[in-house]
Computed example of a mutant assay.
Amino acid sequence: MKSCNSRSVNIRAIQHFLYCPRRFGLLEINVDWAENASVVMGNIIHERVHSGDGGMCRNGYSMTAVTLYNDELDIYGVSDCIEFSPDKNGDYIGRDGKRYTVTLVEYKPTRPKDGEISLPDSVQVFAQKLCADKVFGCNCKGAVYYADVRKRTVLPFDSEYEKYYKLVEGLISQMRDILESGEIPLRKKGQHCGGCSLENVCMPKCDSYSVKENIRQMLAE
Rank of each mutant, 00 (worst) to 15 (best):
Arg95Phe: 03
Glu162Cys: 00
Gly90His: 05
Arg150His: 13
Asp71Thr: 09
Tyr69Ile: 01
Lys129Trp: 00
Tyr76Ser: 07
Tyr161Asp: 14
Asp74Ile: 00
Val102Lys: 08
Arg150Met: 11
Ser118Asn: 14
Ser85Thr: 15
Glu83Phe: 06
Thr153Trp: 03
Glu116Gly: 14
Ser159Gly: 00
Gly137Asn: 08
Gly60Ala: 05
Pro112Ser: 12
Arg99Glu: 09
Met175Pro: 03
Arg95Cys: 01
Glu116Ile: 02
Tyr164Gln: 06
Ala143His: 07
Arg152Tyr: 04
Asp80Pro: 01
Tyr146Asp: 12
Tyr145Ser: 05
Asp177Ser: 13
Pro112Lys: 09
Thr153Ala: 13
Asp177Met: 07
Cys138Ala: 07
Arg58Trp: 12
Val102Asn: 06
Gln174Arg: 14
Leu68Lys: 01
Asp96Glu: 12
Gly142Trp: 07
Lys88Ala: 09
Thr110Asn: 15
Gly97Ser: 07
Arg150Gly: 00
Ser85Ile: 10
Gly90Leu: 04
Cys131Trp: 10
Val123Cys: 12
Gly77Arg: 02
Ala65Phe: 07
Leu73Lys: 14
Lys166Cys: 07
Thr67Lys: 14
Tyr161Thr: 01
Ala143Met: 06
Leu104His: 11
Tyr69Ser: 13
Val154Asn: 15
Ser79Asn: 07
Glu169Asn: 14
Cys81Gly: 02
Asp91Phe: 01
Asp158Ser: 09
Leu73Asn: 09
Lys113Asn: 13
Cys81Ala: 07
Lys113Gly: 02
Glu169Pro: 00
Glu183Lys: 14
Asp121Gln: 04
Ala132Gly: 03
Ser79Pro: 00
Met175Gln: 09
Asp133Pro: 01
Tyr145Asn: 11
Ile178Asp: 11
Lys151Cys: 08
Asn59Ser: 13
Ile184Trp: 11
Glu116Lys: 15
Tyr161Ser: 05
Thr64His: 11
Asp80Trp: 03
Pro120Arg: 06
Arg58Leu: 13
Leu186Phe: 09
Asp96Lys: 03
Phe126Met: 10
Ser173Leu: 11
Asp91Gly: 01
Ala127Phe: 06
Lys141Asp: 13
Leu171Glu: 11
Phe136Ser: 01
Lys108His: 11
Pro86Ala: 05
Gly142Pro: 08
Asp158Val: 03
Leu130Met: 15
Thr64Leu: 01
Gly60Ile: 01
Asn89Phe: 10
Val102Glu: 12
Gly77Tyr: 10
Cys81Leu: 05
Pro120Leu: 03
Leu167Met: 14
Thr101Gly: 04
Asn59Trp: 10
Asp114Gln: 05
Ala127Ile: 02
Val78Ser: 10
Pro120Asn: 08
Gly142Met: 02
Val144Thr: 08
Ile82Val: 15
Tyr161His: 15
Lys141Gly: 12
Ser181Phe: 04
